[in-house]
Design a protein around this nucleic acid. Sequence first.
DNA 1: CATGTTTCCTGACAGC
DNA 2: TGCTGTCAGGAAACAT
Length: 304
Amino acid sequence: MPELPEVETIANGVDQRVRGRTILSLWLGSKPEPFRSTPAELAHALTGSAIERVHRVGKHIVVDLTRDPIAARRRSTAAPTKSQPWRGQWLVHLGMTGRLLVCQADEPTPKHTHAILQLDDTREIRFVDSRRFGRLSVLDLSAEVAPNTGKRKSGASSRDEGFLGPGQEPLDISFDAFCALFRGRRTPIKSALLNQKLLHGVGNIYADESLFRAGIRPRRQAGRLTAKELECLHSAIQSVLREAIALGGSSVSDYVDASGQKGFFQLEHKVYLRTGEPCLVCQTPVRRILVAGRGTHFCPHCQH
DNA sequence: CATGTTTCCTGACAGC
DNA sequence: TGCTGTCAGGAAACAT
């Protein structure tokens, strides 16, 4: 399932392939679940827009879009002399099984394709998602930025809480800010790590792997970790995520990047999906429990 | 507010 | 072979 390292890999791959291209047209499937913006909003933001860059925020792939004033004027009769370029963003959340693929337009369309963006060459960007937990939405930045303050209007998009919300980037967060996230929380540390309102981008695989590396049991109360343990966890999360990004993510179930390549970090997993197998450090069988409704893997000897 | 539980989806896989 | 049942999980909705 795509978490931060997988999303980073996909976003980088898509960026390399389509940066600078223009979206000529858009096709949307009939299943409504994947669309958090209306089809009209999606069409308005995407059709005719140029892709300025593709990057990652938390678990979202963010496609920065622009339309220059000349093109915008051509599209409408209004002709302001000093019009700013129109700006927007296409947000893609892959959920469990979502894929964002760049391919030739004549390649066969896979089952569960929900959106196709035709580019100004012979290629397409396709959003494919069998389980339909993934979500597509667009932001109109020109409309949502107040002219005087430059700040986004409050309440512009409560639907995109996970994207614009309070969560912090785990690779950027300072140790002090990291500690503050958990202070006073009685929820299990694993639940806190999965909470996107606290940290962006950590999912089931990297929560388990980080807790193993830090030697902390997943059910420990978040607010009761010692300073030393928090220090271990802070650096464990960052090192696990960085190593996973370097290896192109973890390919469990059917994850592939923008060109269909698999990642290699699954070969480095110490506990995730290793239930009953010997711990690679102490040989104790890896145990599986349920935390926050998620399968949770840990070594009862190495983690305290 | 904080925390726990249920729901949405389909493919994979076990068992008969 | 083909059917049925179970399970996985991100995040939102709902319940406590």
